[in-house]
Amino acid sequence: MSLHSATVPPAPVLFRVNRWLSWLENTLTLCAAAAIFFLMLVAVFQILSRTLFGTAIYGYIDYIEQASPIFALLGVSYCQRLGAHVRMDLILRGLPKRLLWAMEGLAVLVAIAIITLLVDSTFDNFLRAWYRGDSSMDIRLPVWPSKLMVPFALSVLWVRLLLQTVDYARLVVYPDAVPIAVPMLETPEEQARTEIEEALGREGRTGT
């Protein structure tokens, strides 16, 4: 048995929960991408119909407004998992591992507190729209589905943040353990190498 496996206990529950949550995040991100593609087709049809036939899609603006939360928020937890949100980590890169994981965990705890307040307030907003029967201005579409999408997406993000808190706590105790539910920080050299490999891969696929 290696020293690494002897000193760092496995975390099968964390691994399974992260795998299930990652599947959910991937599915929601695909739904967001499909919504963007569908709205692009609708926009093209809108332009063609106005140009060729002098007519427009009835309630086009209402449909766009109701679909906005889908592509704006469904991928937010996926981005958190990958560490793709805008962040300043220049100072963190030089910290010792244990302190690094502690600082990352503290930032996630602050995010959990903020997201908790947002989930509560946005769900109340959904309930008001549900009870009052709020609708869009033009074709009277009910607005509660789009308002429900906001607390749902934020709740998925909340679960991701909670999972990352658990993993950061594990990494504080075992700083040399392999991260499971948190993104890996890359050095500028590693980021440049990754971007070059991705660019070369795209060029290779294009050339073939």
Results as ranks from 00 to 15, higher is better:
residue 53 F to L: 13
residue 118 L to I: 04
residue 38 F to I: 12
residue 61 I to D: 13
residue 31 C to V: 15
residue 103 M to F: 15
residue 54 G to H: 00
residue 93 R to A: 10
residue 108 V to E: 02
residue 135 S to K: 12
residue 90 L to W: 13
residue 137 M to C: 07
residue 30 L to P: 12
residue 36 I to K: 02
residue 72 A to W: 12
residue 108 V to T: 13
residue 77 S to H: 02
residue 36 I to S: 09
residue 73 L to Y: 04
residue 48 L to W: 13
residue 84 A to C: 06
residue 66 Q to N: 14
residue 125 N to V: 01
residue 82 L to R: 14
residue 70 I to G: 06
residue 118 L to H: 00
residue 102 A to R: 15
residue 67 A to T: 11
residue 45 F to G: 13
residue 135 S to F: 11
residue 47 I to Y: 06
residue 113 A to T: 07
residue 44 V to F: 11
residue 115 I to A: 08
residue 58 Y to T: 13
residue 60 Y to M: 08
residue 23 W to M: 12
residue 40 M to S: 14
residue 97 K to G: 07
residue 32 A to S: 04
residue 83 G to E: 05
residue 99 L to W: 04
residue 41 L to M: 12
residue 35 A to V: 07
residue 53 F to E: 14
residue 68 S to A: 15
residue 40 M to Q: 10
residue 127 L to P: 00
residue 116 T to F: 10
residue 116 T to P: 06
residue 47 I to L: 11
residue 68 S to I: 11
residue 32 A to H: 04
residue 26 N to W: 06
residue 75 G to Q: 05
residue 103 M to R: 15
residue 98 R to E: 11
residue 82 L to H: 12
residue 61 I to T: 11
residue 113 A to L: 12
residue 83 G to T: 02
residue 107 A to C: 08
residue 48 L to Q: 06
residue 26 N to P: 09
residue 134 D to T: 03
residue 77 S to C: 01
residue 84 A to R: 13
residue 134 D to Q: 04
residue 37 F to S: 13
residue 103 M to P: 14
residue 126 F to Y: 03
residue 88 M to G: 10
residue 129 A to I: 00
residue 55 T to R: 14
residue 103 M to C: 15
residue 121 S to V: 04
residue 37 F to I: 14
residue 28 L to I: 03
